[in-house]
Amino acid sequence: MLLQIVRRTAILLASLVVSSVLVFAFMVLLPGDPARVALGVNASESAVTQLRQEFGLDRPLVAQYLSWVSGLVRFDLGTSYVSRAEIAPQIVDRLQVTMWLVVCAMLLAVVIAVPFGTLMALRHRRPSGLALSALSQVGVAVPAFLAGILLITVFAVKLQWLPANGWTPPNENPTQFLRQLVLPVLSLGLVQGAVLTRYVRSAILDVQREDYIRTARAKGLGRARALRRHGFRNAAIPVVTVLALQLATLLIGAVVVERVFVIPGLGSLLLDQVSNRDLIFVQDVVMLLVFAVLVVNFVVDLLYLVIDPRLKVGAR
C-alpha cells in the first residue's frame, strides 16, 4: 500500500516536471521572441532589448526555465510582460470564480448521472430506458457554449427569469450571485451530466453481466439489491476515472462558457492574455490547468487503492 502511494507520487512529480518542460519549451522556444511578441511589431529595437533585460529573457534558456520553475514552486509566478503586474494574485482572483462554476457543475453532473445512468441501465431494453438513452445522446451532442446560448434565449430573453450574463461575488450580493450562477452552471453541468450518464449506464451494464452479480442473486438478493450491494462499488472504478478526465474537460469547457456569460474567470483571463500576447501569463495559466488535472488524476489513483482491494498488494 505504502509502496503504491510512493510509486504514484513519483509518477506525479515526474509528470509535473515533464509537463513544465513541455509548456516552457512550447511557449519559449517556438515563437521567436516573447518580448517582441508582447510589444508588437512596431516596437523599437531598444524597447525590446530593455524588456528582454528586465525579464531576464537574454539569459540562457536553462536558467530561464529554472527560475520560472523555482518561482512556480514558491507560487511566485512573476510579472506580466505587458501590464507589469504581479500574475499570482490575478490568477487566484479568477480561479475562485472558475472554481464556483466547475465545482457546482460537477456536482450537478454527478447528481444527474448516477440515478439516470442506473435507471437507463436497469431499463436498457424498455421504452423508458431507450427514451432516456436517446435524450442523453442529444445532451452529449450539445456543446456547453451552445447550451448556454440556448438557455439564455429561453430563460433570459423569452421568460426573463434570470440575467443573461455577468458575475457578482457571493459576499457582495448573494442573491444576485446565485441568479447569475444558475445558467452557466446549468449549461456546463447538464452537458457533463449527459456525458457522465452514458458512462454510468455502460459501467452498470457491464457490472450487471458479471458473474458475481449472478452469484449475489442466486443467494436471494433481488435484482436491484444485488446491484446496489455488489455492483456499485465495482462500477465506480471506471466512472471515477471518467470523472477525473471530465474535470479537465470542465476546467477548459469553463473557458468557453465564461466567454458566453461574460464571467471574469480563469478562462477569460487566459483568453485575454492570449490576445494581449502576454506569453509568460499564458504559460502560467496553462501550467496551472495542467497541474490541476495531474493532481486530480493522482487523487483518483489513490482512490482506487481504497475502492479496489486487488491493488493493495500484500494487504493480507
Partner: peptide
C-alpha cells in the same frame, strides 16, 4: 457456478 474466478465480488 462454473467459473469460480469471477463468481465472487472482487471488492
Amino acid at each position: 457456478f462454473q467459473e469460480p474466478m469471477t463468481a465472487l465480488n472482487p471488492t
